[in-house]
Design a protein around this nucleic acid. Structure first.
Lengths: 171, 171
DNA sequence: TCCAATTTGATTGTGTACAATTTAATAGCT
DNA sequence: AGCTATTAAATTGTACACAATCAAATTGGA
């Protein structure tokens, strides 16, 4: 018995019985969890010269599309709440990438805009996707399929999460 | 022009030009990042009654398979380093789920074992996969395909990451 | 034997993440 | 106007996550 597989339990996928079947989504969720960590890790050395972390890069992608944005708009786009975004944006402000200021029309809102340096960073950042893509070597079809599957998966999971915390729903 | 899509830029996937093509893996990586967050969120209400977070649940899955395990074995299985695992395991020790002790044969190693309470938690935890799976409603084929694709994707990404930090390689 | 290189965890510092609470401001109703 | 409910961020507290560094133990020669 020389199984040297370090994964949770990579079955031979021959004939999964009941117990194994239940383990399948554990494997799937873990695969997702692990792949996400690898994404962050893969981006790190590429983004480091730009002075960005991966979540900060995602914020910049949104801001490069259109600006200004409110904190809640960023949160909706990235699936993050203010408890995550506020300190993240403060660090980006300290780095001179963005400005934060209250919306005069509605003082509850905080408008996030790009500084000149932040806008200028778009140019060197154009090489980022290629730098990553050249390493993973997936075909456009594979990329498209996986993305579509993940988005479908995410839509279903969002449903599960919404059922879970019933108290956070309008009623 | 009434585009109300909150995503980064969900194209119509008609005829991607060069710029759009480069954006594809941004979308893919973000989809992965977002889906991973949703996994953690979906597990939260299910694991909360067991007193576990999702990473802690992953550690328990490994320990329920076989015990004892060293910290580095856990790290290899879960793709986490000691800086993450040490405090996590200490919290689990404080919660009475695991014991930690040096290996008499090699004092550098720390052996993690299950307490009675930790081992007993396996029973109620058996309902966890079903609780999650019943909500996402994916066919076994879909689950298997997505898992396989993700693992393939992860293998390639691992390659990219290893190229990135060239200083962490043996030489 | 002795000692340099390696291995293994722990520690430190920074940066996400999110639930729960708080604060401030707007909107809606009477 | 005055009051209540709602909304938007910020804050607080807890929990990952990893790079860099440190300390202790083991290993492998010379």
């Amino acid at each position: 018995m020389s199984r040297t597989d370090p994964d949770l339990k990579t079955q031979t996928s021959a004939a999964p019985d009941a117990a194994e079947f239940l383990r399948l989504d554990n494997q799937l969720c873990f695969a997702l969890y692990a792949a996400s960590g690898l994404v962050t890790r893969a981006y790190r050395p590429i983004l480091e010269p730009l002075g960005l972390t991966y979540p900060q890069y995602l914020v910049m992608l949104v801001l490069w599309e259109r600006t200004p944005r409110t904190v809640s708009e960023l949160g909706e786009a990235l699936n993050l709440d203010s408890g995550t975004l506020t300190p993240l944006l403060k660090r980006m402000e300290a780095a001179g990438l963005v400005n934060r200021g209250r919306d005069p029309a509605d003082e509850r809102r905080v408008l996030v805009t790009l500084t000149q340096a932040g806008a200028a960073l778009k140019e060197p950042a154009k090489g980022v996707p290629a730098a990553l893509a050249c390493g993973m070597a997936m075909s456009p079809e594979e990329l498209t399929d996986l993305r579509a599957t993940l988005q479908d998966f995410a839509r279903r999971l969002k449903g599960v999460a919404d059922e879970g915390d019933s108290y956070s729903r309008p009623a």
